[in-house]
Design a protein around this nucleic acid. Structure first.
Lengths: 203, 203
DNA sequence: TAGCGCCCTAACCTTTGGTATAGGAACGCT
DNA sequence: AGCGTTCCTATACCAAAGGTTAGGGCGCTA
């Protein structure tokens, strides 16, 4: 197996690669950011599998993934993520990733998944696949669709008026939603509501 | 070397332990959370070194560290952290930790640090020691001490009046600081300022 | 059909937030 | 001494946020 592992945490990178090499007999190339990964791909030809850390310089979201896929001709690019929101996992697959690996996974399972993906199979942990559970953030369940839209704008720091324009509603209506949002999120004001939503990783 | 490694990420735990065992000849016990770690310490006697992930169920801040230190009689407890704010590192040392290891550290350096700490020496990466650089978040540099205090309260979602009470100042003064904060953080309002500060990992 | 939950709007009011302008006190610096 | 910076205070005005009550429309369901 010819594998490229890109992660900006030296420790993660080196220990995982050591494990894949000793236990899995893989040949592992390393990169510390997206730029390094892309260069390595172009230089040392297409890999059987490219593992990209999701939070890494240059990645910003899925654009880095897409670049890597186009660089590594045969595809075979997987995302490695520490805190895995199920939604991004599915988005990654839709964007063409061959797999999604949360770091909460065991080392042995990782090895299996890597073998799996190296041979061209798509890998995705079942916990992240359940359609329903996916969008269902524990917090989001209580909110109506409208409220979610408003909350998202709230998290951009927009004013009621701006939100009203964005959603094509009256300002008063926004106020209403903001009030109920504050109640549901147990916040005293819009700022706390936005902070809470952010911390819950909703957006 | 008799070592206990506690981390809730299976992958991190298993790969690091595999590395420490094969390359460092260490004997590594594992735990997936603080409770497990404490139990393991009490059962299998004091370890030469206990490595605790800073973000792990049961840790909440430094209280988990302190528990572990008192459980592992000889001390010898070190913190392992993914995103390492220099401030917490120093706080951990003050609380009695024998070392602080950011996951951005290389695997070989990790091994050295572990050997070092196992023999009772305090280990701390130099980058995190420089007194000045410590509080110096790239963003925080531009802000006066007062502004930082206000910003911190802002990040709790407090109103101007509440902040004024907390800092024993007049409300108008807070407004002033909020305004300059918004200017310096390039935010349109308090909410955006708070969000920006949070994202920069300031608090 | 009646009831319920969600969504939208209205008018009205109070509190809070944001801006401007101006001045005083404390500190370090040259 | 004079200068600049930071910090604090003050007055005043307008905009925005927060809250209340009241009402209409829509779709679902008992």
């Amino acid at each position: 197996m010819h594998i490229l592992l890109a992660d900006d945490h030296d420790m993660v990178r080196e220990t995982i690669s050591a494990y894949l090499e000793s236990e899995g007999g893989a040949e592992v190339a390393l990169a510390i950011d997206l730029a390094g990964a892309l260069q390595s791909i172009r230089q040392d030809g297409p890999f059987d599998l490219v593992l990209l850390d999701f939070q890494m310089p240059g990645m910003n979201g899925l654009t880095g993934l897409i670049q890597a896929i186009s660089a590594n001709k045969g595809g075979r690019v997987a995302i490695l993520s520490g805190s895995a929101p199920a939604k991004t996992a599915r988005e990654a697959l839709e964007a063409g990733a061959i797999g999604f690996i949360p770091k909460t996974m065991g080392a042995q399972s990782l090895l299996n998944a890597v073998r799996f993906m190296s041979s061209g199979e798509v890998y995705m942990p079942v916990e992240l696949m359940r359609e329903e559970e996916a969008t269902d953030h524990p917090l989001a369940e209580k909110l109506s669709p409208r409220e979610l839209e408003v909350l998202e704008s709230l998290c951009k720091g927009l004013s009621n008026k701006e939100i009203a324009r964005e959603l094509d509603l009256q300002e008063v209506t926004i106020k209403l939603h903001v009030r109920t949002l504050c109640r549901k999120l147990d916040a005293k004001n819009r700022t706390q509501a936005a902070l809470t939503a952010k911390e819950a990783g909703l957006f």
